[in-house]
Each structure stands twice: as C-alpha cells, then as structure tokens.
Design a protein around this nucleic acid. Structure first.
Lengths: 211, 211
DNA sequence: GTCTATATATAGATAGAC
DNA sequence: GTCTATCTATATATAGAC
C-alpha cells in the first residue's frame, strides 16, 4: 500500500500528546523542554518536530482533542441537554459531564496551566473561549427553561447564575490542583448541594435579614 | 546619621516588587525575564541582584509582603473575627477581607500564577499553604460557632463547608483572571447570595434568632 | 550602590544523512 | 520517518570597575 496508514500517524501523534500532557501537568508549559517530551515519547528531536511544528502546537493539540474517541462529542451532548424537556435533570447531566474530567489526576493542573497560558497566547485563549462560551450558553439556556418551568428561582439572572455554576464546577479543578487533600469525587455531592440550594426557589417569601 | 537608611533600601525593594508584580501578572513567571524587571524598575542587572539573590526570590517576596502597610495584618483580622460573638457577621467580614484584593486587576492573574508555580516550588507551596490553612481554620471555626448559635445549617460539616466557602472566594479571582467580562465588584452580591443560601439552615423550621 | 560587560548554560528548532 | 549533529538565540547570574 502507498502512504503509511494515516491511522498510524494519528496514533503516534496521540502517543506524543499523552506523554506531553503528563509533563505539562507536572511541570508547566515553559519548564517542560522539548527534549523531555522527546524522551518521554521515545523519539528524537528531529522526529518530534516532524509531527508538530513547535512546542506550543503540542500544547494546543492537547485541548483540541474532542469527540472521536467517545461515541458522542461534548458539543453534541451539550446540545442534546439543551433540548431536554426536563431542564433541571438536564442541568445535572451537564454538571456530570463537565465534572467528569476532574477525577483524572492530570486534568486539574493541566487546566490551570492552560488558563494561565491563555493570557499570553491569543490562539489558545480563543480556543478555550469557544469551549467556555458553548458551556455557558448551554447552562444559561437550561437555567432559563428551568425557571420558566418553575424548577428554580425565577428571580435569578440566567447569565450571572450560569457564570457561577461554571465557576463552581471550575472550583473542582482548581481545588484539586491546589489542595492535595481535596478529592473531587468525594466533593461532588457537596457541589450538587450548593447548586441545589443556590438555584432552587426560596422556600416561601423569606427575605434573609442582612444588616 | 548612619549610612544608607534601611528605609530607603526597603523602599527600593518595594519599588522593584511593584514593577515585577505587574510583569509576572501579565506574562507569568517564566516568560518574564530579569532584564525586563530591570528595565521596569529602572536599574541594571547587577543592581537588581544586589537586592534579591535570584528571580524566584523576587516572586516569593511579592506574596510575603503582609501587614506593615495597613494598620492591622490579615492574620490579626482573622484572629479577631474568630473571637467575635456574632459568627455570621464575622464570617461576612472575613469574606470581605479575602475578596478585597480581587478588585485589584493584577491580583487575579498573579494569584493564578502563584498557584501554578507552587506545584514546582516547595518553598512557595509552603508559603501559600500556611496562608490557606490560616484562612481555612478561621472560616471553619466561624462556621462551627455559627452552627452552634443556630445561625446556619448545623448538618453541614464545618471543614468541608469551609473548603467550599474558600473555593467560592477563589472563584472570584479565577473568574476575573479567565473572563474579561467578569467584574468581581459586581459579582460580590451574587457570591454573598450563594453563601447565604448554601449555609443558612434548611428553610422548614429553624430561623436565625437575631433581632 | 550602581554600573558595564560577560560567563555559562540551555532552550527551541533546523539540516541533512539514511 | 527517523536519526545525529548543530545553529542560533536568549536567559540567569556574576565579575569587577567606579
């Protein structure tokens, strides 16, 4: 056959990305050298740069890998959730979808690193921004529908509330990255409790007295 | 008088730290060169290293500057809050104390960078860990007292709840660092609302005995 | 205390053989 | 596609004059 299967080329790329992700998570982008990536991937410098044009492209590719492996892409699952006729249940599914990665030990530090790098890398910033906008739209849509269906407090602004829902989810990653004692899986119920109490309508007409 | 007032030496150090903080916030630790710090501080390389032994020491010093300038140090204010006889009010004061810095535009990215750097810098990790432990103790103590006083849900575990209170506060910094549209000052009331709904006792019977 | 000049090292990326 | 060898740039930190 002609042309070395593109499948093999793709597999090799994935292997490099996997090795690089570990390093970037442990040491950050700048302190991870291409030489280390070569060693971890078991190949030479000349070969590494045959697969990726530069170090930054490797980092980007880690966050571009979407769908393909799983049956359904994240975007598809978000879209399907938005169309649900039980917005609250759909919201809980979205929360589960977005928190799943936090259980993977490399994800939290990797996400932190990506956020920091996005400050000085417009391309990465745009990439993460698109992801975040997608998630924000999905959550805000569900919150609006849930409010209309009487499932949550209708007084909440869907946009602001969605921002905080995503912030709480992000806390799972930042806390895991910061505090070695923090176990995302164990804290998931607390996260759900906070969301429920925050979003569910105030019990009666109780107005908490604040001085 | 004696030579070289220590005051002048200290002022010069502070000036370097101020200049360096801006750069570290904008470009991160690794991508900020000592040459840039020299330029921003208006001095030569040889002189910069007269004030600090190395680049990392400059970064550390930014997070060590505590108290001295303000009338009362953060540790003192936390200790005083813990002794309050109105735990809920004291908790709100602690929240205000810990969120104040988020309004300073350089603080959020700087905090993010510190967290990331702490992963590979044990000394910095210890420094931030001490700060965080102090805050966690203060909040957990106040939550336990507030529960005993019937001000919040007594079913909450003070340790876990304190972790999430601090996580919510941290969200103010991470969101500000991530999303240019996020205005910490404007979102502070939402943060307070979430805390109130999360922590206050389940609606049914218990109500705060405050009058 | 402040400067200029530079030692030292290490990084990312490329060239070109096989 | 994969390698070895290396170019080029740039960074931290130091030496030593003033």
């Amino acid at each position: 056959m002609r042309k070395v299967d593109p499948a093999k080329h793709r597999a090799r790329r994935q292997y490099i990305l996997h090795a690089a992700a570990q390093l970037f998570a442990a040491k950050g982008f700048e302190r991870t050298t291409t030489a280390e990536i070569c060693k971890a991937a078991g190949m030479s410098s000349g070969n590494l740069f045959h697969y990726f044009p530069n170090k930054r492209a490797i980092f980007h590719a880690i966050f571009e890998e979407d769908g393909a492996d799983s049956g359904e892409s994240k975007a598809e699952r978000l879209a399907r959730a938005q169309a649900s006729d039980d917005p609250w249940a759909a919201l809980l599914e979205v929360v589960e979808l977005l928190t799943a990665d936090a259980m993977n030990p490399v994800a939290p530090p990797l996400v932190m690193e990506a956020v920091v790098q996005a400050h000085r890398d417009p391309e990465l910033d745009a990439l993460l921004g698109r992801d975040n906008a997608q998630e924000h739209t999905a959550v805000a849509t569900l919150l609006a529908k849930a409010a209309a269906a009487g499932q949550i407090d209708p007084a909440l602004d869907p946009h602001d509330a969605a921002t905080w829902v995503l912030a709480l989810i992000a806390s799972l990653y930042t806390s895991a990255a910061t505090d070695p004692a923090f176990r995302p899986a164990a804290q998931l119920p607390v996260l759900r409790l906070i969301l429920q109490r925050f979003l569910k309508a105030p019990p009666l007409d109780v107005h908490p007295p604040r001085a």
